[in-house]
């Protein structure tokens, strides 16, 4: 599904990702771990096509297409979803209305009719139930005044509604208390299928107790320094990241 080859990318002229290769197939869950500043979030943003990040080398293909030539909006419509680490607040834009806009954008892209607010409400209600989200979320403005945890839940709600092929969740666990983490993880697990794939970006092993990864990659100073199976995360938890720091 996703093939990343020797990717180099950065921000504001400085290179943050210094040659990453990664292959993600449908049905797989990959965890990308690493210390702060290792390039985890940059990778997520580059996959989504954030305009502030510049790709300086390498390739990314998604279902055979060259992702680097595709605008962010089109990437989303092709099924790439990014769960933001810091979801931006958009005052004045009603959450339910925003979700419907996003849902309808996908329908229109697939040549289908848009849903009116009443029909969409049924879908929204069902997904909110799945994530044990209170009704207030639909009345509120998009992320506006949400706590960190509420924002993250709202990201997963969007994922549930948009049903992406590839979801890249950037530090979705940060800011969540244990109950919220469980609810969010349950939600993500329910959304997993043989047809979609998941990249979990996380600093801590905690999330991986709830969402089982097939592969764990450790990122340090812009490179994947170690890849392994689930057990690698536990090793990291016990030993920290220092032993994996590359020596240049």
């Amino acid at each position: 599904m996703l093939e990343v080859k020797d990717l180099r990318a950065g921000f504001d002229g400085s290179e943050i990702i210094k040659g990453i290769s990664l292959s993600v197939k449908a049905g797989e869950v990959h965890a990308i771990m690493g210390p702060n500043g290792s390039g985890k979030s940059t990778l997520a943003k580059v996959l989504a096509g954030h305009p502030s990040y510049e790709v300086t080398g390498g390739e990314i293909s998604f279902n055979g297409e060259n992702l680097l030539e595709i605008e962010p909006e089109q990437r989303a419509l092709k099924g790439i979803f990014m769960g933001f680490q810091y979801p931006v607040e958009i005052p004045g834009v009603n959450n339910a209305e925003f979700l419907r806009m996003a849902y309808n954008a996908r329908l229109v892209n697939e040549g289908q009719e848009e849903l009116d607010p009443l029909d969409f409400d049924d879908i929204l209600t069902e997904k909110m139930k799945m994530l044990s989200m209170e009704k207030k979320y639909r009345e509120r403005n998009l992320n506006d005044g949400f706590s960190g945890g509420e924002k993250k839940k709202n990201e997963i709600l969007q994922m549930a509604i948009l049903q992406p092929k590839l979801a890249v969740l950037d530090e979705t666990d940060s800011g969540l208390d244990i109950d919220a983490l469980r609810v969010v993880s349950d939600g993500v697990n329910k959304l997993k299928s043989a047809d979609n794939a998941l990249i979990l970006i996380t600093h801590y092993q905690r999330l991986l107790e709830y969402i089982q990864p097939d592969f764990v990659h450790v990122l340090s100073q812009g490179k994947i320094v170690k890849s392994g199976e689930k057990g690698l995360a536990l090793e990291l938890e016990a030993q920290g990241y220092d032993w994996l720091t590359p020596t240049n």
């Binding site: 954030h50 989303a76 931006v88 958009i90 996003a102």
Partner: peptide, 8 residues
């Protein structure tokens, strides 16, 4: 970008 990332 947030909107665009959701296909809007």
């Amino acid at each position: 970008f947030y909107f665009e990332q959701r296909g809007i």
